[in-house]
């Protein structure tokens, strides 16, 4: 589903150039659940932003479902995001002025889905993440776990083939964190590809494969669970 070749990202200020990603080569197949790990500042979030077309690479290639997307225009990227990618963030990033229902409904609005269909799909996904009873509440009225479940619901409501999760349990206690991870695993089992950045070894064990990064480069890929196989990147 995703291939990168020599992907690079450099952050520039007036005086300092920081190489956040340095020639990263990566392939993620459809249906995979991949965790990206590494110390703070190693470039994992930058990688996720590039994969999610939230940021432009400075060099290299990024292929999504067979199409080179590295140099897509802003509009093309927006179109691809709304149709194919769902995002889950550490800080939930729900819109405070919208209710749970309205937050989840938002991607469908941008996709142009008509109202009866929109309502059906929102209710269905809220049911799936077990938050229907709170659908008329505002984000501030929910616990962290509930907010993240809403964020997951919003990420999957338009049934994207890919979910990018940036430390989805970072702001949650272990019980709520496990709930969210179970939810992501379930989605993966139903066929959604998931790429997740995490600091947590516990959460990483939910994935099929862990990519370890250091100083902007992928240094190792290890297969989790029963495959117990380690390869050097």
């Amino acid at each position: 589903m995703i291939q990168t070749q020599n992907l690079e990202k450099v952050y520039r200020t007036d005086e300092i150039h920081t190489t956040a990603l340095n020639k990263v080569n990566l392939e993620v197949k459809a249906g995979e659940f991949v965790a990206v790990m590494g110390p703070s500042g190693c470039g994992k979030s930058t990688l996720l932003n590039l994969l999610g077309l939230l940021d432009d690479p400075d060099a290299g290639s990024l292929v999504f479902n067979g199409t080179e997307v590295a140099h897509f225009s802003e509009r093309q990227r927006a179109d691809l995001r709304k149709s194919s990618i769902g995002f889950v963030f550490q800080s939930f990033n729900l819109i405070d002025e919208l209710t749970v229902f309205e937050n989840v409904e938002l991607p469908l609005i941008y996709l142009g889905v008509k109202n009866p269909e929109r309502r059906r799909r929102v209710e269905e996904v809220l049911e799936k993440v077990q938050i229907t009873h709170r659908m008329n509440h505002y984000p501030q009225q929910l616990s962290g776990g509930q907010q993240q479940r809403v964020a997951v619901a919003r990420a999957v409501v338009n049934q994207p083939p890919l979910i990018l999760a940036d430390e989805p349990t970072g702001n949650l206690d272990s019980s709520n964190g496990n709930e969210v991870m179970d939810l992501l695993s379930e989605l993966n089992r139903q066929g959604t590809t998931i790429i997740m950045v995490t600091h947590s070894e516990h959460d990483a064990r939910y994935s099929h494969r862990i990519i370890r990064m250091l100083d902007g480069q992928t240094i190792m890929t290890e297969v989790t669970a029963d495959q117990a196989q380690v390869t050097l990147a």
Binding site: A78, R81, S83, I95, L106, Y110
Partner: peptide, 11 residues
Amino acid sequence: EVGVRKTIGAS
């Protein structure tokens, strides 16, 4: 809000 909207596809 802008970030979220853009992320989920707003132009």
